[in-house]
Structures are given as C-alpha cells and as structure tokens.
Amino acid sequence: MATFTEHYDLIKPGTDDYYDVADFNENMDAIDTQLYQAEQDMAGVSEKIGNPGDEGEDTLFGLLNPGNQPEEKADFYRYSKTEIKKQIQNWKPNLSGSTTFYGKITTFRAEKNGTVYVKWTSSDTANGEFYIYHKAPLSILEAPDQSELGSSIPKGLQQEDFCYYHINYVYSSNKGKPTTFEWVFPVIAGIDYTFMWYASSASSLYLNEFSLGYTDTKEA
C-alpha cells in the first residue's frame, strides 16, 4: 500500500504495488515545482541584499551605506577601512624570573590630525596595562620596537603629564587564551606617540598581535 513523504506528499509505492508511471511523473512535477520556487525565493533575497557600494535605500548594502546612516553608524560602517601603519605579531618577552614587566611596543609619529585605531590580542597570563605617552625621553623614543625595558617603569616616564592614555586591559589571568581589545584615540600631527606595555603578577607573556593605523571611526 502506497504512503506519502512528510513534507511534499511524494508518493511512496508499497512493496506489493505495481509500478505506475503516473506516480513517478507526479513526484517529478512536485519536485520540479518546489525547486523552482526555492530558486525564485533565493533570487528575491539576493536582490534585496544588493551589492557592496549600493547607494540607494532599496537594498541592504544601500541602507548600510554611510550616506544613508546617522553619523555614529556611518563611522562604524567605515571601521573596516583602517589604514594600518604599524603591526607587531608573536612577541614573547622574557620575564627573567620576574613577575613584572615594562616594554616598549612602538613609537608612532602622527602624520596628520585624526583618529587611530588600535587592536591588541594577547594570550599572556598576567594583569596587563596599556600606556600611550605623548612625551618620552629620547632614549625611549629611539629604542626599537618590542624593547624589553625591565621590571620597573623606565626613567623619564614617571611624570604623570607625559601619559596620554592608560588602560587596564586585563584583570587577573586569562589562562593563556587569546583575548582581543580594540580602541580608538585622537592624534595630533607631528606628535610622537609611544605605546608601552606593563604587566604585573605575570607568569607568561605573549603578544599575538598589535595593529595600529588611521581610521575614520570616532568611537570604539
């Protein structure tokens, strides 16, 4: 005795039924109808999504265009257009038996007034802090990227007004799992900005990625 499939009622002849070409054709017609409908539905979805660069409001890409967004959302849309100027990867400082570490990540001279974007991914086991100095001694400015500067704050950086930004990016241990943080900062043309890394209660340190560049984004 024939039965039917759950979703499209396709005919399933029983083991005792004779072959009937009409049943076969009915099944093919049902399958053809469903496939064609699915194809039309997908075409409609694709049309509504549109293409990158659309400026009208009749597609999803068009609605996301900065010209059709409030200022704060337009900035977020432009986030992917960051112009990377500095990138450091896979830095593993030597703690040398200490649990405290100071290191220079890099010094960045702003070419223009604007906003820079910073991405930080680390898998260290420590309490971490991130400093940006807009003033620094010549010895620090000229130190190469990824300089290990010991277990105490380098001489000349103790002055509070030298520090432009200070962020605690990790509290306690992240147990060695990569953690990513992202920030944006305003910069002034002609100023050298020195990025420093401080860690305490550290049992291991590993900077997976540090990326820095200009961006139109005004808020992280």
Rank of each mutant, 00 (worst) to 15 (best):
I84S: 08
I84L: 09
K86I: 14
K86V: 14
N90G: 09
N94T: 12
L95C: 09
F108R: 00
R109Y: 04
E111A: 13
K112N: 13
K112V: 08
N113C: 01
T115F: 08
T115C: 11
V118C: 12
V118I: 15
W120C: 02
T121H: 02
T121V: 10
S123W: 07
D124R: 14
T125H: 10
N127I: 07
N127H: 12
Y133I: 00
Y133W: 07
H134I: 03
L138N: 11
S139G: 08
S139R: 14
E142C: 02
A143S: 15
D145F: 05
Q146L: 15
L149I: 04
L149V: 07
S151P: 03
G156S: 08
G156R: 05
G156W: 03
L157H: 08
E160R: 12
F162Y: 14
F162M: 09
Y164E: 14
Y165R: 15
H166K: 11
N168R: 03
V170L: 10
Y171R: 14
S172K: 09
S172F: 12
S172Y: 11
S173Y: 12
S173C: 10
N174C: 06
P178Q: 03
T179K: 09
E182F: 02
W183Y: 15
V184H: 07
P186H: 01
A189F: 04
D192P: 05
T194S: 15
M196C: 13
M196G: 12
W197N: 07
S203M: 04
S204N: 09
S204A: 10
